[in-house]
Amino acid sequence: MQETPFCLKVGHLLPYSMSESNTTEFTNPSTFILLGIPGLEAAHIWICIPFCTMYIIAILGNFSILFTVKMELSLREPMYYFLCMLAVNDLVVYTSTLPKMLAIFWFNSREIDFSACLTQMYFMLIFSVMESGILLAMALDRYVAICHPLRHSAILTNPLVAKIGLAVVLRGCIVVLPFPFLVRQWPYCRTNIIPEPFCAHIAVVNLACTDTHVSSYYGLFVQFCVMGLDGIFIGVSYTQILRAIFILPTKEVRLKTLGTCGSHIFLISAFYIPGVIISLMSRFAQNVPLYFHVLIANVSFLMPPMLNPIIYGVRTKQIRDRLLRLFSHKGT
């Protein structure tokens, strides 16, 4: 069986070898078998503990942000609208992946219907592209707020914010739409075993017994020409922001503004940098066990949705104060 040197998982490169799993001859399976983390099956019951903790933190944190913005009228600003979009996006990412992962780790429930697998794959892809667009919109908001503070409300009006949000959603839907159509039309005759805890795109594509280069090339196009361009524009925005920060009149103002932007830069880095690391691992760390690649890729995919509400909740004074008032009021 010929080995496939790399795998694109939600915009990331992940080593995958067909020789790592058993193969059987069949035609177009109705279900796939998710292995979880190959090589660590005996430790699944323990591995599920940090993943379950991440799930709880992400659910509580993102719902707290949505509730706070809804209840606090002073937070009806572009930054918080985009933050709510990010929270909803992260909730869907976790809801589409973590329950099945935990079912595999806890109950050894490895089967997934073909249509359910495609649906999960589609949601993972679309909301990864959407998160990239939301981070770009948030970088634009910070650029206008810091570089053009007097014109912020005039530039980023509510209608424009709504149009940006709609554009982010439509772009994600349109860009990702070819993936499930391509996957559905191919015949499958190698194996129905996926060495992942969820339906990663190329992990499914590699099971097809036909030429699938078009899907791999399109995946690279999305990674570099869509999400890559977002990363470049975000980098340009924060370069201009940092230039503006260092010419502010007082040290206190510079430090306060830099602290706010620093948390944003940290979250953006947590979203983009792991993909680069995994890409380098796939090319220069071929001898690393498959379970290590799968584990690192899963953590890097699921970490940002957990970190987003923590960082924004701790670093954003308005959200932190509103939550403190809420809990202190309940405690009295």
Rank of each mutant, 00 (worst) to 15 (best):
C7Y: 08
V10H: 05
G11W: 10
H12T: 07
L13A: 12
S17N: 10
S17W: 06
M18F: 05
M18R: 03
S19N: 11
F26A: 02
F26N: 00
S30C: 05
S30D: 14
S30R: 05
T31F: 13
T31L: 00
G36K: 04
G36R: 05
P38C: 05
P38K: 00
G39K: 01
G39Y: 13
C48A: 10
Y55Q: 05
A58G: 12
G61V: 07
G61I: 08
N62R: 05
F63W: 13
K70M: 07
E72R: 06
L73A: 14
S74R: 09
R76V: 04
P78H: 12
P78E: 12
Y81N: 10
Y81I: 06
C84K: 10
M85E: 15
M85N: 14
M85C: 15
M85T: 08
A87P: 06
A87T: 07
N89E: 15
N89H: 02
V92G: 09
V93M: 13
S96M: 11
L98C: 06
P99N: 09
W106I: 10
F107Y: 15
N108A: 08
E111G: 04
F114P: 00
S115P: 00
S115L: 08
S115I: 09
M121P: 00
S128Q: 12
S128H: 14
M130S: 08
M130Q: 13
I134V: 14
L136P: 05
A137S: 15
A137F: 15
L156D: 13
T157Q: 02
P159H: 02
A162H: 11
G165N: 10
G165T: 07
G165R: 03
L166A: 13
L166D: 04
L166S: 10
L166P: 01
V168Y: 11
V169Q: 05
V169Y: 11
L170C: 13
G172L: 11
V175F: 14
V176C: 15
P178G: 10
P180T: 04
V183Y: 06
Q185S: 13
R190F: 04
N192S: 09
A203K: 00
V205T: 08
T210I: 10
T210F: 00
S215L: 15
Y217S: 08
G219H: 09
Q223P: 01
V226L: 08
V226N: 11
D230I: 00
G231K: 01
F233R: 02
V236L: 14
I241E: 07
A244W: 11
I245Q: 11
L248A: 07
T250R: 01
K251I: 06
K251L: 07
R254P: 03
K256E: 15
H264F: 14
I265T: 09
A270R: 02
G275F: 09
G275A: 09
G275H: 11
S279V: 02
S279I: 05
M281Q: 08
A285C: 12
Q286L: 10
N287V: 01
N287S: 12
H293T: 02
I296W: 14
S300N: 02
P304L: 13
M306W: 03
N308G: 02
P309E: 12
G313L: 09
V314R: 05
R315Q: 06
R315F: 15
T316Y: 11
Q318I: 03
Q318N: 05
R320H: 13
R322V: 02
L323H: 08
L323M: 13
L323K: 04
L324S: 09
R325E: 15
H329C: 02
K330F: 14
G331W: 13
G331V: 02
G331I: 03
